[in-house]
């Protein structure tokens, strides 16, 4: 297999993971103007939930046909439990405060969740590698790829297209787009913003947990797995423009492919290449690739 093609495939796989983590983050920011630092911790919770259900820790390992549905159920469970709890009970207390205060509240939340994970699941790694074998291994020249990674690319594409179609084609989606632009006007027009926030945040938690549950089979589930994920997805959404689904997709692709190219061509640069790309994009496009300029209010 040609090196350029290898880079592209590696970049796509990595980008799919990044996109799955980042899309929830960008939606929550777009609609609620909350940069949710706890997104990474929720991603870890999703991974633990998936590992508990499917990895043979709570029950015997389920048959192959049930493994993927159960991973999704795990993510749903996390979302329905934590979404309303965190938004309805906690974040609501901070609405109307500075963006940075809410950001700090989610930062505090991520510290708390990380410790709670340790209390519930302990510090030792969990493994749920069974689904990783579901789609077999694909031989490509000198390389072997895992079918599950291709499946993740498909899932990422479906999630992205689904979100995009929802925002463009449905009535609720159009309301959400309106909220992204100006939630005050929406409120004045009779939109139940408070309920929309609850839904948005719960969907955000679901997307974080889904990313965690689906990626869990490819790695070891540890309490700190969210730390690296959250900072990379910050980079992705900032590159793409906060609040934009298309931006997150493009950001994930750019970061994925640049990182893959760096690993193949200049391995030592991997440490900071993502941030170098982010700084370069911001220097040229101050609000990210798909960022919209903010109206000036007098």
């Amino acid at each position: 297999m040609d090196i350029a093609l290898t880079i592209l495939v590696d970049g796509l796989i990595y980008g799919a993971w990044l996109f799955l983590v980042a899309i929830g983050l960008t939606l929550v920011f777009g609609i609620m103007k909350i940069l949710n630092v706890a997104h990474g911790a929720l991603y870890a919770v999703g991974a633990y939930a998936g590992a508990s259900l499917v990895g043979g820790y709570l029950f015997a390992t389920p048959p192959a046909a049930l493994q993927l549905p159960l991973l999704i159920v795990a993510a749903l469970g996390v979302a329905l439990l934590l979404g309303p709890l965190l938004e309805g009970v906690l974040l609501r207390l901070f609405y109307g405060r500075d963006e940075v205060v809410i950001l700090l509240a989610t930062f505090a939340l991520s510290l708390i969740i990380e410790d709670l994970i340790k209390q519930v699941w302990g510090v030792y790694s969990y493994y749920v590698s069974e689904p990783y074998a579901l789609f077999g291994v694909i031989e490509a020249g000198p390389l072997f790829y895992v079918g599950y990674d291709a499946f993740l690319i498909v899932v990422a594409a479906l999630v992205g297209l689904g979100a995009s179609a929802f925002l463009r084609l449905t009535r609720q989606g159009k309301i959400v787009v309106a909220m992204i632009h100006d939630s005050e006007i929406c409120r004045a027009m009779g939109v139940n913003v408070s309920r929309a926030y609850l839904w948005t945040f719960t969907v955000g938690v679901f997307l974080a947990a889904l990313a965690g549950a689906l990626i869990a089979p490819t790695l070891a589930v540890t309490p700190t797995m969210g730390v690296n994920a959250i900072i990379l997805s910050f980079a992705v959404v900032v590159i793409g423009g906060l609040g934009s689904v298309e931006g997150a997709a493009l950001g994930a692709l750019i970061v994925g492919c640049t990182r893959a190219a760096t690993v193949h061509l200049w391995p030592e640069g991997e440490l900071f290449i993502v941030y170098a790309v982010m700084a370069a994009v911001l220097a040229v496009r101050p609000r990210g690739l798909f960022g919209m300029p903010e109206g000036r209010k007098i």
């Binding site: 290898t6 000198p142 990674d149 790695l219 797995m225 690296n228 991997e270």
Partner: peptide, 17 residues
């Protein structure tokens, strides 16, 4: 690789090639 990366797909490709 970067410490904490958790994803080694590209590195494995390099080694396989």
């Amino acid at each position: 690789p970067e410490p904490g990366a958790g994803q080694y797909g590209s590195q494995i490709s390099v080694l396989m090639r």
